[in-house]
Design a protein around this nucleic acid. Structure first.
Lengths: 237, 237
DNA sequence: ATTGTCAGAATATGATCAAATTTTTTAATG
DNA sequence: CATTAAAAAATTTGATCATATTCTGACAAT
């Protein structure tokens, strides 16, 4: 006889102090949870370029099993957010100037098209959302809150990707964020939020004016500015 | 003092009998081997769009353990070569017309820059290699050998990526091949090699003439032609 | 149609073994 | 003796597998 519910309940009861404990699949599979956590660490956390990422370390930190951790690491390695170091170790990549040039080209090309498509689809409600994110972003800059700035900025771009309804291009763009995110984080942490500029308001204006090309140009310029900041900071180091 | 090389050598000699034993990783880790095998299956094998990919199936087929298979699948999912279907199933994605448009844009943009960079680096020896690949490619077409054509064509582009010395862009381009490879394969299998055209010779001429922009344009056109063929074939289905 | 049951596939864990690095020990030389 | 290079042990971490548990879709019975 087979009683899946029953046996599951028994298991939970047996460890019932652990109702929302770690190893009980709340809703998402563990490998997905670990992936998201590690992704956050890379984009916004303390995982700076050069940091070693160990399987055992994540097993301890996140309280997950080996297999899910392993899968999350492979996924992020495939996306370029982590690199193999020949021996079996994995770390957050350190970008060279040539790497940054590649990223700048790719980001400009992909982001331009995404914003072009987004501008053709965009609704008044979407614009309102973008505006509220941009306002929060400005406040983060004024407050000097680097972490909040990084998240808001990402959120702004990500919202446009959603509106574009181009899943492949959005996935590519997301992968590029993962690659230069750690470097951007370090730079901003060093320089603060004072020197930060963007083209978000120009892009919003162009979208309101129903001018996709102008919006695309604005965001391509925005991306270019961001990459330039990283490049400049890298030179001075 | 610490000399990793030395101690490594000693270790290898000590166990040198266990060269190709069963669960002893001969040269590459199992997860890497499985990844490459699965990648080949997707690019050139019988894994057509829509095919289901099961963990058990690969465990049986490739004679590997579950964990390495799992890792390979996650990697290829992150690269877009496979997709999750919400429930725990994984399959080779079926591309929509919109997807193909996204891919056409991304491939043209990335490939153009890669060829531009390659043309600036290229040596006479590289040109000779490209020519020999292109000759073999033409012979494959004449023979009507679809499998060989696909491999040669990939090899031609891949060689240019190497010459470009732009690892991030090359990785992106590689990921795009994985996405449209299965569709290309199906189309070629259906239509044969008769209608196949490319811009390889024009690109080679431009590189010999030391004209990176012309070479980049030629290969962007080549990519465009390829994507058009897939688009046309998809419409007729 | 709804519910219950089941087989099969996916998820996840911990154990085990192999590989890489650090630390310690040993030996040799000036 | 001190210094330093090599070897050996110890530690940490990665790779793999066997196994237990959970989930899903299909099918049968009402």
């Amino acid at each position: 006889m087979y009683f899946p519910k029953k046996s599951y309940k028994v298991r939970v009861v047996k460890e019932d102090f652990a109702v929302k404990e770690n190893n009980v699949p709340a809703g998402l599979p563990a490998h997905e949870t670990v992936y998201r956590a590690l992704r956050e660490l890379i984009l916004f956390g303390e995982l700076t370029p050069g940091s070693a990422v160990t399987i055992q370390g994540l097993v301890d930190t996140l309280g997950a099993g080996m297999t899910p951790v392993r899968e999350a690491i492979r996924r992020l390695t495939a996306e370029g957010a982590l690199v193999f170091q020949g021996n079996r170790r994995v770390c957050v990549p350190v970008l060279t100037q040539a790497n940054l040039d590649e990223l700048a080209y790719a980001r400009a090309a992909i982001e331009r098209q995404l914003v072009y498509l987004a501008a053709k689809n965009i609704t008044a409600a979407d614009i309102a959302i973008l505006r509220s994110i941009d306002t929060a972003l400005d406040q983060s800059i004024a407050r000097g809150d680097v972490g909040a700035y990084l998240r808001r900025n990402y959120e702004f771009h990500k919202t446009l990707y959603d509106v574009a309804k181009a899943p492949i291009l959005a996935h590519l763009a997301d992968g590029l964020w993962l690659r230069f995110g750690p470097s951007l984080r370090v730079i901003c942490g060093r320089l603060g939020t004072q020197s930060l500029v963007d083209q978000h308001k120009q892009a919003i204006q162009a979208m309101i004016a129903n001018n996709p090309t102008a919006a695309a140009d604005a965001m391509a310029a925005d991306v270019g500015q961001g990459m330039d900041q990283v490049t400049q900071a890298l030179k001075q180091k």
